[in-house]
Each structure stands twice: as C-alpha cells, then as structure tokens.
Amino acid sequence: MLVAALGLAGCGDPLDPLLEVTGPTMGTFYSVKVARPPAELRTETLRETVTAVLDQVIAEISTYDPTSELSRLNADPTTDWVPVSAELLDVVAEGQRISELSGGAFDITVGPLVNLWGFGPEHRDGTVPDAAAIAAALERVGYDKLALRAEPPAIRKARGDIYIDLSALGEGQGAARVASALEARGVTDYMVAIAGAIRVRGHNAKGAPWAIAIEEPTPGRRSVHRIIEISDGALSTSGDYRNFFEEGGQRYSHEIDPKTGRPIAHSLASVTVVDADATRADGLATALMVMGEARGPALAEAEQIPAYFIVREDAGFRVVSTAAFQRYLRE
C-alpha cells in the first residue's frame, strides 16, 4: 500500500531495444522494463516470468489470500513453533530488523489495527473505531511477541491471535524477487516497479541511468515533484495521500502508528528511500513515514539512509533530504 513513483525511461524514441510488460498484482499494478534484452527473451516469456514470480510471492505473504502461507500462520491459534518457508521467514526477519531500528515505529504485527481501521482484507466502511476497540487491538500488537528460528525455519507467536501483516514489505519483496528472476535470465538492464517499490539495474534504452519521478503528495492529482536518477539499487515511496478516509472533516491515513493504534497525525506527506534491497527500502519508507517530520529525518541521517522527505505546510511543501540522498538528485 505504498504510493507509486513514476518510472521514466527517457524522452523520445529509445535507441536500444526495450521490452515492457505491465499488469495487476497485489491490489495495484506492476511495470517491468528490460533494455537491451538477451536475444532469446521475448515479451510473452518476460510476462510469464514476472507473473509466476509475483503469484508465488502472493502465495507466501498475502493476507488477502486466505490460502496463503501467511494467512495459515495467522489462523493458527497455537503458540507452538510453526514451520514456515525460508522465503516467508526472510521477509518476517527483515520486518523485525526494521522494527528494532525504528524503535517499534514499524511493526509487522500491526495487522489487527490495520483491519480495525478498515485498511486490510476485512474491509469495512471508513469509520473511526472507539477507544475500547483500539485498546483491544493494541493488546495483540508488538514485534516482541514473535520469535523466529532459522533451522529449521519456524515462527512462534506469544499469543495465538497475533496477526502478521507484511503489506509494507510485500511490494518491495515482489520487486526484489522479479529482479532476481530477470538476472537469472541474463538481464542486466531493467526497471521493476510495483506501485511505489522499484528495483533498477544498469541503464535505460538511451544508455542513461533510470530516471524515476517522485510524485507530488497531493490527493486526487498525479504530478511530478522531483526526478531522481539511479543505475543500481531499489527505492520505495510511502505516503498518506492516496489511501485514506475522511470523517468529521479529518483525514485518516492507512499509515497506522503501532504505538498509538491510530493513523499518523503529523505533517510528513511522503518519504522516498533508496537502498540496495527492495524489501528493506519498502519497510524503511513506511518506518520513516510513521516516525514523522522530526524523528524520521533524524534517524535517517544518523543511519546514513538515503531518504527524501516531503513535509506538508500551510504555504505548500517543504523538502528535507539526507546527505546520502543527494547523489541521486537530478540537477
């Protein structure tokens, strides 16, 4: 549920061959571009590869699919060790690392709150839940209520009703896995975008770094705020301006603070993060978004995370970017 950044391959006709496929996935859309593809790679083969990878990711970590591996884990009422795939364990472990780094601002056990506020698979009309319901959901939240085991892979819940939600990592995981599949086929120049999670390598069809547009965080409108250039890495954008509901003149975002049990209520409108790993970039963007316009940039600067913050103010937008992000900005 991240905000889509716009992928740009450059203006005019491409100088080199370019394959492109798009389609629906994870409740949003994907776009994959391959410049200078291997001679044997065809558009239909590319589409089949991407679809197979994304379908497998959904089968592992989706909360919208009741038959997925994660849904079965969530439905397990025990507090015993539950065997899981290495792939699911890796995503959960990444979430736990980001939780530690962010002091709990990021928490994959936030699912009960996401559902309570109407932003999960148990969809309900946007209404503000009462304090008692929020307090009850908060009892089931806390990344310290999970234990992980590497060999053999397993997860143990401290309470049987713990509900893990990996949507803040899912698009990044999808982008990372598609990128790996492309590289296994000999692809060296590509852009994989799943909503706001993007993984790129090499150069576009003009032989230049991939140009990616950060959206202006304005509800109901799509426009480019800033272009960045990147030739190897991942980036992800998280924001409060696409998925929300309004009640009593107040807007309630899908970005839930695991500490308060309520949607974020600060001035930070969006965060874009660059990282070597797409799953980590996805989670870090959400963590920094929840932390807000003061704590988010402070953590990103301290950890040397390339991050770009757009803060909403009465007069418009104010930008804060870390020193590590500067090299990606197009003049």
Rank of each mutant, 00 (worst) to 15 (best):
A205P: 05
G316H: 13
D55H: 12
E44P: 08
M26P: 06
D90I: 14
G207Y: 10
E60T: 12
L15A: 10
S85H: 07
E94I: 15
V192M: 08
T260C: 09
E229L: 13
T78N: 06
L288W: 00
A52L: 09
P209L: 03
A135Q: 11
P83W: 09
F106P: 04
L284W: 04
A9G: 14
H225R: 12
H225A: 11
I134Y: 03
R327P: 06
K206L: 13
F325G: 02
D90L: 15
P209D: 06
G120C: 14
F29H: 14
L148G: 03
A137N: 10
A208G: 11
A176R: 01
V311A: 00
A184Y: 15
E139T: 11
E171T: 14
Q96S: 09
S71D: 05
A9S: 12
L8Q: 14
D16W: 09
L148F: 07
G202W: 05
R280F: 10
A278E: 01
A175H: 00
P66V: 09
V34I: 11
V311E: 03
N204K: 01
K33G: 00
G249T: 13
L54Q: 08
V141C: 06
A285N: 00
A133G: 11
K157C: 05
V21Q: 02
I61F: 05
R318V: 11
E247M: 11
I155H: 12
R97W: 08
V271Y: 01
A302E: 04
I227A: 08
A205N: 00
E48C: 12
G160M: 06
G103S: 00
N243M: 10
A193T: 10
V290Y: 04
D240Y: 07
V141T: 07
N115C: 03
S180N: 10
R97L: 10
K145Y: 04
T237W: 00
I98M: 01
P77D: 14
K33Q: 01
S321R: 14
E69V: 07
T272D: 05
A39Q: 08
C11F: 15
V187Q: 02
T218H: 08
D16Y: 13
K259F: 14
S270F: 08
A211S: 14
H225V: 09
L101S: 05
Y328H: 06
E94L: 12
A315I: 12
E229R: 15
G239S: 05
R36H: 07
T127N: 15
E122T: 12
G120M: 11
E229K: 13
D240F: 05
R318W: 07
E100V: 15
A5K: 05
G170W: 05
I198T: 06
A133V: 13
I228G: 00
F119I: 06
D277T: 06
A269V: 07
A181E: 04
G104W: 01
I198Q: 03
K157E: 00
A52V: 09
D13T: 13
L169G: 10
A315D: 13
E94F: 11
G104K: 00
T28F: 11
N243A: 13
G126K: 06
D80I: 07
W210R: 07
G249F: 15
A175R: 03
G95I: 04
E216K: 02
M26R: 06
V200T: 03
V32E: 02
I227Q: 05
V192D: 01
G118R: 01
I212S: 00
L101M: 09
L299P: 02
D13S: 12
G103D: 04
G292C: 06
R295Y: 11
L70H: 09
G142S: 08
D107I: 04
A181K: 02
G118N: 02
I264V: 14
